[in-house]
Nucleic acid binder design. Sequence first.
RNA 1: GGCCUUAUCGUCUAACGGUUAGGACAUCGGCUUUUCAAGCCGGUAAUCCGGGUUCGAUUCCCGGUAGGGUCACCA
Length: 479
Amino acid sequence: MENNQTQKIVTRFAPSPTGFVHVGNLRTALYAWAYARKNKGTFILRIEDTDKAREVEGSIEHVMESLKWIGVNWDEGPDIGGPNTPYKQSERLDSYIKYAKILIEKGFAYADPYTEEEVEAFRKKADEEKRPFLYRDHRPENPPVWNGSLPLRFKVKDIKSYEWNDLVRGHLKAGAEALDDFILIKGDGYPTYNFAHVIDDLEMGVTHIMRGDEFISSTPKFLSLYDALEIKRPEFVMLPPIMGPDGKKKLGKRDGAKDFLEYKKEGYLPSAMINFLAFIGWNPGTEKEILTPEEFIELFDLKQIHISGGSFNEDKLNWINKEHIKLLPENDLEKYVFEWLPKELQIKKIVPIIAERIYKFGEIKDMVEKGELDFFYKEPSYDKEKLIYKDTAKEIILKNLINVVDQFSKIEELKFDKNEVRTCLDVISLETGKKGEVLHPVRLALSGLEKSPDPFIISEILGKEETISRLNKAILLLS
RNA sequence: GGCCUUAUCGUCUAACGGUUAGGACAUCGGCUUUUCAAGCCGGUAAUCCGGGUUCGAUUCCCGGUAGGGUCACCA
């Protein structure tokens, strides 16, 4: 388990193209990537497309787009090649056949003569008897010579309990029940995951295998295969599961796990997604919760990976995203916000106002649709009763508004900013002694909304002329 | 059912065997304030149960309970 200082770290992310990737897949990719980056190693993207029936068109592009979105870049992969090309399992069949032949020669593999229905019957019987299904209980006595059209099975010669070390969980073991004559090559000529990934990892020089803990129980199968081929075991890094929001079930596509790119569509930041994903199953052991991707790589350490599952908490994601929005340089923030705004609302000065009120950029869409921002570019319409602050007499409100217009008129056009406006309104408030009676009607006259940003900044954004014009409209309404 | 694995506030988590069990999100309250948002301050809230080992267990061991995984010609 000790890291050999001279050995270059090689990790990989190996999705199967069966549709979109979700946060669980991405977290695995993220850790493998971060570990490689931190150790100046190599991160490989490999496509495990050996199940032709489940393959979904466009998946590979979708996976790559998901990774690219959050900046998880690979050093070798199907699109860019590398020293161990090809990076799609469907194009590596020769390798699997080569090793299959070695196994046959060594007596570690044999053809499976049963039909799928027959095997299914064995399984059903075992299930009814509440026994684990083991093919080796039905191992044929004189299997036919393998000709490529029958499934090829691994032959477990030494049925024993296996033990191994895991960099996260430490010492692990499994009973002999976990060992079976699993299929190496299917009837259709494609290898199974169990076989293919072992060969690929060997040929690609993968040093650390990171994957979800659902693979713990099949690890003895891999181990027996390593032994048969006399391959040195790679390091195992079992990642804890990500549970759904209820904290009970493992998060999976069937339980509503979202397409990872949905988060992009909803307006989350890549850096926030990395931060959030990183913290499901790992933390730096300090009280720091907001990390940039660079900080994450720097701090990432296998020793701090958790062993128990964590649940996906959207509230926390939202909070993290908000914190990352705060970290955004002005220009980037503006770019993001403008993406969600119609032309007429692409006003520089409203960017911070909006940013302060959202967790994710998608919320801007709602604000726009509800017309909550319209007053920034067009005169609001509102019920005149709303101008009245609490039970203040109409005459007082009117008098104050007239006073405000009077004072605003005296401010130089170029000096008409939020500070000047605030000072001016403060003076008037001080004279009347009732702040609300002055500020509320002004704010309402400008925004037309019960809830809005303060009147100072609105005045600045609207400018002197428009501000006074709106205040005059309000005066007219009340008269 | 077999095998494997996990267990600290509602959630994510911290705590060389010795802490008033810490932090964050959420929630509640207060301050600030014309409203909203933000900000600041504070509150509620946890070691699954039972045995051991120990002067002393959240921590180590055993058992129970509860959760998760796995038992494919899927990965």
